[in-house]
Structure formats: C-alpha cells, structure tokens
Design a protein around this nucleic acid. Structure first.
Lengths: 338, 338
DNA sequence: GGCGCTGATCGAACCGGTTCGACGCGCAAT
DNA sequence: ATTGCGCGTCGAACCGGTTCGATCAGCGCC
C-alpha cells in the first residue's frame, strides 16, 4: 500500500506538505496541491487510519452496543446507523450485550481500548456503579431506546408512556376493564415508562388495577409465553393483554393459541413495537410502532456531530422523543359477555 | 491511558522488555516478568491496538459484510460471529451491502483500509471483474451463505439443492404437480442452487415443469407479493408454491390472504429459511431451516484460525455444507380437486 | 541596501507499540 | 587464563501519519 512518503517522492515535496495538502485547512499553493493530488491518484494513496488514529488518539470507528442484535428492531436500527456512518466515512463496530449490564460495560471497555470515536448505546443497567461508569465516559455518547437518567448525554427514543397509554385507552374504549400487562425487564427505562403509561391511563379512566394482572416479563418470548399461560388459566382471567414489546406479544399469542383461545374473540391483545411481517400474522396485532429509521438517523447524526465538534464548543445534552404511531389490527374486540 | 513506557519506568526495565513480557514468546526471566505484570496491573496498562496495528499492518477487527442486516437470518448470524470474535479478543465491524455487488466492493475497500484481520463475506456478485477483485484479496476470507465459485477461500453454507429438493418432494407426495417456484435474485449462488433442487426433483418425479410457473424474485417480500399475485390470478394457477426464502414466503402468503385464498386449502406453500416467530403465523409454514448458529460458529472459527496462522503454513480452502432440516407446518395439503 | 513581513515549504519530534542486532554477564570448555 | 556460548536485557529503528517551529524566497518600504 502506498504511503505518504511515496506520494511525497513522486510529487517532489516533503511528507509534511503532503499531509498539509490532505488536511484541507493546510495552506499549500494551488500548484503544489494539484501536483500532490495527481501523485496520490497515480500511486493509489489512501491515508492509513491506524496511523492517523495513533496520532490523534481516536479512530474513525463508532461503536454500537445493543441488547440483542438478532431482534429486528435493533437490526433495523443498526442498518440505519451504519448507512449514515458510512456516508460520513465512518464504520460501525457492533456488539451484543445480551441485555446484561456487566457485559455491556466490558464491551464499552473494549471499544474504549479501540479508541472508537463515539458510542451509540442502548443501556441496560441502573445500579449506582454502573451509572458512574457510564458517566465517566470521556467520549461522544448517544443513548437510544433506553436511557440512564442522571447521565448527561444525548438521548433518542420514543414516548413510551404515550405508547402504552394509547393502547390501554384503545382497549378501554372497547369496554375492557380487566386488562393485564406483561411488563418488560425490571429496572429498564422503557419498562417503567410503559408500565407508567398503562397504570396512569387505567387510573385516569377510573379503573382500579388488579396488581396480580401485572406480570413481570423480560422482553423475551419464552417468559411472556409462561406469563400469558398463567394469566389465561386463571378463573378470573383478563379480557385483554398489553404486551410491553413485540416478541412478548408473539409469545403471548402463542400461549393463547395453544390453550385453544381465539384472539380477539376470547381475549384482546396489543403490543408495543412493530412485529416484522406482522401483516401475515393472524390476527394482525394492534400495536404502536416506533419510527426506527428516524431513531437511527437522529442518533447517528448527533453522534457524528459530537465527533466533529470534539474539543470545540461543547454541545449541551439533547433529547429527542419520537411520537409512536398506532396501527390498528384485528386483535381487539369487545370483551365477551360470558 | 497508561502506555508501555509508564510500565517500563515503574518496573525499572526498558520498554522492549515490557513488550517482550507481553508477547508471551518473549524470553524474560520469571522475576522480571512478575515485576512487569505487577506494574501493568497498578497503572492499568492495556496495549494500544492502534499502535499494534500500525506496526503489524493489521488490526484486531474483523469485517462482516452481508446483504441485509435487518433480515433476522443475518442478525442471528452476526450475533453468533460477534460472540465468537469477542471470545477471541476481536471485534466485528459490520456493514450492509444492500445486496449490491458494487457497494459490497466499496465496503471491502474500506475494510481493507482499516486493516481488518479478516472478512466474513456473504458475496453478491458474479461478474468477471467482481470475481477478480475478490480473488485479489490478500487477507483471510470466509464466505457464508452465498459463494463465488472459482475463489479459493473457505465456504460455509447449507445444502441448498437438498433444501429445495426436500420441500419439492414433500409437496409432490401430497399430490401436487403444478408447483410454482418463486426464485431468489438472479445471479446469486443460493438462487441457482435452490432452483436446481426444485427442477431436479420435479424431473426425478417425472413431472414436466411449466416454465411460466418459475418466477424471478429477489429475496424481498414486495417482489414476491407481486409474483404471487400474478401466479394466483392465472386461470391455470399452481396448487403449490415453493418460495426461495422466508421473506418471500411471507410476501406470498400475504398475497394469498389478500386475494381471499386460504392456505393450505386453496394453495400449499413452503419456504426455505426460518421465519422468525413462525410458530404464531397462521398457518405454520412448512419449511427447511438452516443451522444458523452452527453456520456462524464455523465461519468465525475458521476465520480466526486463518488469522492466527497468518503467514504460517497455508491452510487449504475448506468448505462445510450444513444439512438443512425440514420443519413440517400446516401450510401443505392435497390439491383441491375442483 | 537593509529591514520586516507574509506565505509556502520543510525537518524533526511524536503517537505507542514491535523487533532486530548488540551487549554484558556468568558459566563451562579448552 | 582465555575463549565461546546462551540467556536476559537494552537501544534504536521502524510502522505512517500529524503538527510545530524553523527556514526561505519574494516583496514592499524606509
């Protein structure tokens, strides 16, 4: 591979001049600039990012840490981020924390070692020492989906309170009063927000919430299947279920089917988050969807801004809360008057 | 961040000795080794990968290039690769080629610039100059899913001929003779292999294939929807459809539903590749599934082997063809005798 | 004619590692 | 006592860039 010295030799200048010519802000004469560019062209010179990174202390890579890459929500998010990054001459190191705070921190350490220019993080911790570690990060940071309060960094997410409020309201209007909620993993931001939206809406409608109908989930299908089984086999079973995410809604739906119940005749079901190819799942589940592409675009652009502005005028922490959208399917009906 | 010089100073040795102590194969006395390690511990020294990379000419990153990260098949693949890489102290740069050969080459160039240690590639080209470019790669390379023949590199994939043969045979046994095939994107390895399995099995059963029932797809849902629409609105419509991948099967299923047909009563449908949460899609689609985790494990381990053996005894190109597995659902029935 | 100034270019140090040849030392062989 | 050898350690060069201070040519001006 051609180095800066090859270019210098061919153009008949010193290597510092070549470097200057490439750094744009350099004050090289138009003539020299021209000669250097031509030389670089013919030898096929491309700056070595490792050398640049060694000197500058940071690479042209950005890290993305999510809880589960195989979840299509994050897949789409990653795709959007990667596209933006590439357009700005950056590449993306992606890593899967398995939704575990400890692994997440280990990954962040690795990324720091690699001198990534910044990190897009879907945080999964809340313990005090975890928060301290995140706070202590010296590099550009944007949090997506989940958030760690007290950390002064950009945040891009959806209005999760509103999301579950919309669905809860929807079900209440159908006449449901015994509505169950399969919540997300305890301790996560989205979990508490979605629970909050559910509880507040119920209260606002003057419906007392049966606490035993609020099941702890973990954003995974298996657990939701089990919880739905438990809910549906009770004598005083709910007439509607709000699942805190897509995967859990599908788990619940499977439990419903396996027990021989019919959705929505026997039970209504709603979900937060899109279900991939939800339109071929019978019944189409009524859900609120997040604007994933927009999420990805804002998160990556903000990160790149911070990377560019590094050292310069500090950008104050920003947040962008996207409005979720209700997509009505056929999974809701009035409660059966048995 | 602590550097090797800090450690050297604290341990009272030269930096070369510290380097030697860390490279394992170094011949340092146990006593010195001990002192250096202790010093590294207290100052929190971690080698700078950029400096190491600059000197050695390659980083501890591996590139992964796929056609569509948001497709759960690749999401799972990525997850497996990332896990293995992390266990071997490597990180993964992932990039999405949008199933386009040109973009793929551009990404490979970027990865080469970054001095990645190796690449896991799902190739999407077949033109001669494309093949030359891939052949010319000097770094460890493992191809997954798709393959470019004539390129001497490891390949890990599934037996695609067998995959479609299994499904075709399955449908023939139900009594189907007018079986349609929605093929993958023209020019791709898996596309031709899957088509081959279909045609051979039909021939083997003595059934003449109506060429107009072989539709060109592109592994995307929209196109498959359109093709299924076209197929199903013909007077002499097929009684069964074999879709070349999961996304297309769902597209086809949607077309079937939208037209008011019932699967499997009116039309049987089978698919290659897993459908995420396929068990809540009605009907459960009969499909062959690939062993994605195994695919990921072998691909990443082979790549890491090559990275480790770099310069050493050259490993001859290997290939591993995984056996797909038939998962019977409820999407097939005997053709209606109208 | 000597002065300072400006703009273009250059040399050298530096980033943080790896690696090769050299060196000093103790010990066995001659 | 001298030589040869192996082991542990070290100094210095090098990877390929960036950047700062120095240099130099050309210029207008007193």
């Amino acid at each position: 591979m051609a180095t800066i010295r090859d270019v210098a030799k061919m153009a008949g200048v010193s290597i510092s001049t070549v470097s200057l010519a490439f750094s744009a802000k350099g004050r090289v004469s138009p003539d020299t600039h021209q000669r250097i560019w031509a030389a670089a062209q013919t030898v096929g010179y491309v700056p070595n990012p490792l050398a640049q990174g060694l000197k500058s202390g940071r690479s042209r890579l950005i890290g993305m840490v999510v809880g589960d890459i195989s979840n299509p929500f994050f897949g789409r998010l990653l795709k959007g981020v990667e596209r933006t990054a590439l357009a700005h001459n950056h590449m993306v190191i992606v890593s899967d924390s398995d939704a575990d705070a400890k692994q997440e921190l280990a990954i962040i350490d690795q990324l720091t070692e690699q001198r990534v220019a910044g990190i897009i993080l879907s945080p999964h911790g809340n313990a005090p020492d975890y928060v301290e570690r995140i706070k202590g990060l010296k590099m550009p940071l944007v949090m997506v989906d989940h958030r760690v309060p007290s950390v002064e960094a950009d945040f891009v997410g959806s209005d999760n309170v509103l999301a579950s409020a919309m669905l809860t309201e929807h079900m209440i209007r159908y006449g449901h009063r015994r509505i169950a909620h399969i919540a997300g993993r305890a301790g996560l931001y989205t979990t508490s927000q979605r629970l909050k939206g559910f509880l507040e809406t119920m209260q606002g409608a003057g419906i007392e919430v049966d606490q035993s109908l609020v099941a702890d989930g973990d954003y995974r299908g298996e657990r939701a299947y089990a919880e739905a089984m438990r809910l549906m086999t009770r004598a005083d079973r709910p007439t509607a279920i709000l699942a805190a995410n897509n995967v859990m809604a599908l788990g619940a739906l499977q439990a419903i089917n396996d027990l021989g119940f019919i959705c929505p005749t026997d039970i209504s079901l709603t979900s937060i988050d899109d279900v991939p190819w939800g339109n071929v799942i019978q019944p189409r589940i009524t859900m609120v969807v997040q604007q994933v592409d927009e999420l990805a675009r804002i998160a990556s652009e903000w990160l790149l801004e911070r990377i560019r502005a590094r050292g310069g005028d500090a950008i104050p922490p920003r947040e962008h809360i996207l409005m979720p959208q209700l997509v009505v399917g056929q999974s809701c009906a009035a409660p059966s008057t048995q």
